[in-house]
Nucleic acid binder design. Structure first.
Length: 866
RNA sequence: GGGAGCAUAGCUCAGUUGGUUAGAGCACUUGCCUUACAAGCAAGGGGUCACAGGUUCGAGUCCUGUUGCUCCCACCA
């Protein structure tokens, strides 16, 4: 089968992926006696569509796992999806809204049935899309965060923490999303800087004529005011402590209290205390035994506490309350300020602090332990700097609110006895109260934070809490790949959960990547409409091109801007490899036809490329071991394109022996395979009967390192480049062959140059090449490098003056460089302090420059004497 | 308020533990359909590595400060 002129990914990819799956190459057996290497996939949301972030994340994991698999590890990559409780529930609710029904209309069971149906229909979309990227995860091990195994793990986790006293239920002011209608945790709140106002309101002091001025950003919560607070140290107000003030509009008498929480420098230094609507006010309220008045419902509409404002939405109410305050003369002024507002990370609605009963995980001890383990280096962050982010967060962590007022999710395994009030926490379904034997039980209706189950992912996917062979073999994971935006949401939670449940860290290294932005550096988002669909890019350029462009030249942890041009360049690279292979194939076929004898003697070019290949193998392997994927890709790109294609392939056109060519191409295919799995597999198929996936990764072979050959080839290249450059300067068209005379000034290279005359001749487009120690040729175009002086006889084209000018300019530059180099060598400090190899390098440079200067001087003299 | 990152060619970015002449891709100029590849080949132009100090024989790289941009965290009502 012949190879087309250009590689066509569209035709190849799906077929290859199918063959891989059918071949079972993605599967890892836990009974394998190979050393395990484990990667656990961050589960994409079932509601999600493939975006560039996934593409990056998945590609990185795939490169690592393919590399390790080829190295001979029992490499397993476990895929799965996340139930994404808020996002999915919102989707179902929206779907129902279109049908004109609500959650209440159909009830919990019917709702869950719909949700599961939805999951069955659409939940697999994202996995289908992932496959387009060519990822080699073990689909037979695919999991879902709400499958039976995960349910078991969640119950185990919850009950064990509860028994240890690490989970508790309590009434707190939590973050409430009035749109999603659920509590959310601190990490699910995003802070946004926005324009706001300070409303300065006066409160009358009871029994006195004076007023106190209070500044607030939220006048609508005035109905929940239960005190005014000042700092006891504040000279302006300390006499007021113990007195009472009257809340305007509601005309309620409230105490004026002293609390050191109040910041003297902020606003007027007086704070209105609204315990139901601010977490700090809540704390103040606790300290001073104040009542709690909730003035809003779950949608953030004012309730009956708000008098005539009841039933109004919070922003509407804010306006009207301020207006009434103004009319009554209590509004002193409005000051424009910038302040930060918490918003829901799912729907961007401004969160409402809300008092309610919720379940919490006590974080202090868990955080301490996970901090200690990371500090000991049991989990390494790549790049390292993110460890600081992690430490800072862990050191300042507060209890984690885990209950959600949603239906789609893991139901909290708790029952309340309606008779004796007992709280029963159990992994099993409970029918009667263990204390009073009453059967009058009520199950907890809340579900758990999605991240609660995600926290267990690295071990729940391996069968935990059951004692499975897989868990023993594959846990803990070796690498976790994810974005820096998930450090708090996920990485931190996995670490403490794993330590608590398994006494081990969940993974030894975390590879953190950045965000993908559009070409202007903006986040890709639905609202901006600047998202680029990876599937479209794949269908246009192929998955390999997309993968490579996301990896090439990117260092870990940095954001990256997406440019289609880069994908194009990557596609061209795939095509370049394709064509190198095509060249080999054609060459092999021709050789068969002519069936001429090939010499078994290994040529200089062969020695050189094998030496270079082995250095590249060693460098790329080292980069991949360090998880520096971008650097590895860059090294491969440079080697394949510049050294192999541009030089070696050209050299090989003069040789009948294809052995080294074939060996190097096959090695390149293997090295590139983790990055570009499809094109390498496709090409491999033209030469081998097996899959490249089961081939072994190239090993560094020290015996192939040949410094002499490298040095000699470098000399050849320099000479060839000089000739090409001369031709270009003289405007000799590519097709026109010239004679070339090479006067070798560095005599040790004369044999090499002579032996490889044919190479020089071909690659410098020469008619004939003469190589000697000296020539006596006049009226020639000349050029000088450190090894030689080159003549091209094109007398009619030579402008003597111009030539002189050029050479003199060159001489001047070279002299300056030489002078600098000599100064260095004369510097006693340098000679005594610099390491030997550096001094040797400096001497080499000086030698080269000196001979170049000498050559130039000689040439100038010759031309002058013409 | 605290922390982190970035600043290198027109654009996007690499640049290992400091080592001398700072790289790549894209873009640009010029010439080539040289039978692997025009998705290509060859040659070329373009950089006081943000600024100011310091350490060092030697600094894009390490230290200090300044400026500009970005992000994260935080209970200033």
């Amino acid at each position: 089968m012949s190879m087309e002129k250009n590689y066509n990914p569209q035709e190849a990819e799906d077929e290859i992926y199918k063959a891989w799956e059918e071949g079972g190459y993605f599967e890892a057996k836990s009974d394998s006696n190979k050393k395990p290497f484990t990667v656990v996939m961050p589960p994409p949301n079932i509601t999600g569509n493939l975006h560039m972030g996934h593409a990056l994340d998945q590609t990185m994991q795939d490169i690592i796992i393919r590399f390790k698999r080829m190295q001979g590890y029992c490499a397993v990559w476990i895929p799965g999806t996340d139930h994404a409780s808020i996002a999915t529930e919102a989707k179902i609710v929206e779907q129902m809204r279109k049908e004109g029904i609500s959650k209440k209309d159909i009830g919990r069971d019917e709702f869950l049935k719909r949700a599961w149906d939805w999951k069955k229909t659409y939940g697999g979309n994202i996995t289908k899309q992932l496959k387009k990227l060519g990822i080699s995860c073990d689909w037979k091990k695919e999991r879902f965060t709400m499958d039976d195994g995960c349910k078991k793990a969640v119950k185990e986790f919850f009950t064990r923490l509860y028994k240890k006293g690490l989970i508790y239920r309590g009434e707190r002011v939590i973050n409430w999303c009035p749109k999603c209608l659920t509590s959310i945790s601190d990490s699910e709140v995003e802070h946004e800087e926005c324009e706001g106002s300070f409303w300065h309101i006066r409160y009358k002091v009871v029994g006195e004529e004076n007023y106190i001025e209070v500044a607030t950003t939220r006048p609508e919560t005035i109905f929940g005011d239960v005190a005014l607070a000042v700092n006891p140290e504040d000279e302006r107000y300390k006499d007021l402590i113990g007195k009472e003030a009257i809340v305007p509009i509601v005309n309620r008498k409230v105490p004026i209290i002293g609390d050191s929480y109040v910041d003297i420098t902020v606003g007027t230094g007086v704070l209105k205390i609204t315990p139901a609507h601010d977490p700090n006010d809540f704390e103040v309220g606790l300290r001073h035994n104040l009542p709690i008045i909730n003035v809003m419902d779950e949608r953030a509409y004012l309730n009956s506490e708000a008098l005539e404002f009841s039933g109004l939405e919070r922003y509407e109410a804010r306006k009207l309350v301020a207006e009434k305050l103004r009319k009554e003369g209590h509004l002193l002024k409005i000051e424009n300020i910038k302040h930060s507002v918490g918003t829901c990370y799912r729907c961007s609605t401004t969160v409402e602090p809300r008092i309610s009963k919720q379940w919490f995980v006590k974080m202090e001890d868990l955080a301490k332990r996970s901090l200690a383990n990371v500090k000991e280096g049991k989990v390494k962050f790549i790049p390292e700097r993110f460890i600081k982010t992690y430490f800072h967060w862990m050191e300042n962590i507060k209890d984690w609110c885990i209950s959600r007022q949603l239906w789609w999710g893991h139901r909290i395994p708790v029952w309340y006895c309606k008779d004796c009030g007992e709280i029963i926490v159990s992994k099993e379904e409970i029918k009667s109260c263990g204390k009073c034997e009453s059967r009058n039980l009520e199950a907890e209706s809340d579900t758990l934070d999605t991240w609660f189950s995600a926290a267990l992912w690295p071990f729940s996917v391996l069968g935990w809490p059951e004692k499975t062979e897989e868990f023993n073999h594959f846990f803990p994971a070796d690498v976790l790949v994810t974005g820096y935006d998930l450090i708090f949401f996920w990485i931190a939670k996995m670490i403490f959960s794993s330590l608590e449940m398994t006494d081990q860290v969940p993974f030894s290294r975390v590879l953190i990547h950045g965000l993908i932005r559009d070409s202007q550096g903006r986040k890709m988002s639905k609202s901006l409409g600047n998202g680029i669909d990876p599937l479209e890019i794949i269908s246009k350029y192929g998955a390999d091109a997309l993968r490579f462009s996301l990896i090439l030249g990117n260092s870990p942890g940095n954001d990256l801007k997406f440019f289609e041009e880069k994908v194009e360049a990557s596609r061209n690279f795939a095509n370049k490899i394709w064509n190198a292979a095509r060249f080999l194939k054609m060459k092999n076929e021709n050789a068969e036809k002519t069936s001429s004898e090939v010499s078994s003697k290994i040529s200089l070019a062969d020695r050189w490329i094998l030496s270079r290949l082995n250095k590249v193998i060693s460098e790329v392997t080292a980069s991949l071991e360090k998880l520096d994927l971008g650097l590895a890709a860059q090294k491969l790109y440079d080697f394949v394109w510049d050294e192999f294609c541009d030089w070696y392939v050209e050299f090989s056109k003069l040789s009948k022996d294809n052995k080294t060519l074939e060996f190097v191409i096959k090695s390149i295919l293997k090295l590139v395979h983790p990055f570009m799995p499809f094109v390498t597999e496709k090409i491999w198929g033209y030469f081998e009967n097996s899959s490249i996936m089961v081939s072994s990764y190239p090993l560094f072979d020290k015996s192939n390192i040949d410094e002499e050959a490298e040095k000699e080839i470098e000399t050849l290249m320099t000479v060839i480049k000089t000739i090409r450059n001369m031709r270009r300067e003289m405007n000799v068209p590519q097709g026109k062959k010239t004679s070339v005379y090479i006067e070798v000034t560095e005599s040790k290279f004369i044999n090499v140059l002579k032996q490889n005359k044919d190479i020089i001749c071909k690659l410098s487009y020469a008619k004939e090449v003469e190589i000697e120690n000296s020539f006596n040729i006049l009226k020639c175009k000349t050029s000088i490098n450190e090894y030689s002086k080159i003549y091209i006889p094109m007398a009619e084209l030579i402008d003597k003056d111009a030539e002189l000018l050029k050479l003199e300019k060159q001489l001047q530059i070279s002299r300056q460089q030489l002078e600098k180099a000599q100064m260095r060598l004369l510097d006693k400090n340098f000679i005594s302090k610099a390491p030997e190899n550096v001094i040797k390098g400096a001497k080499d440079v000086e030698g080269k420059l000196r001979s170049k200067v000498e050559n130039l001087e000689k040439s100038i003299l010759e031309i002058k004497n013409l």
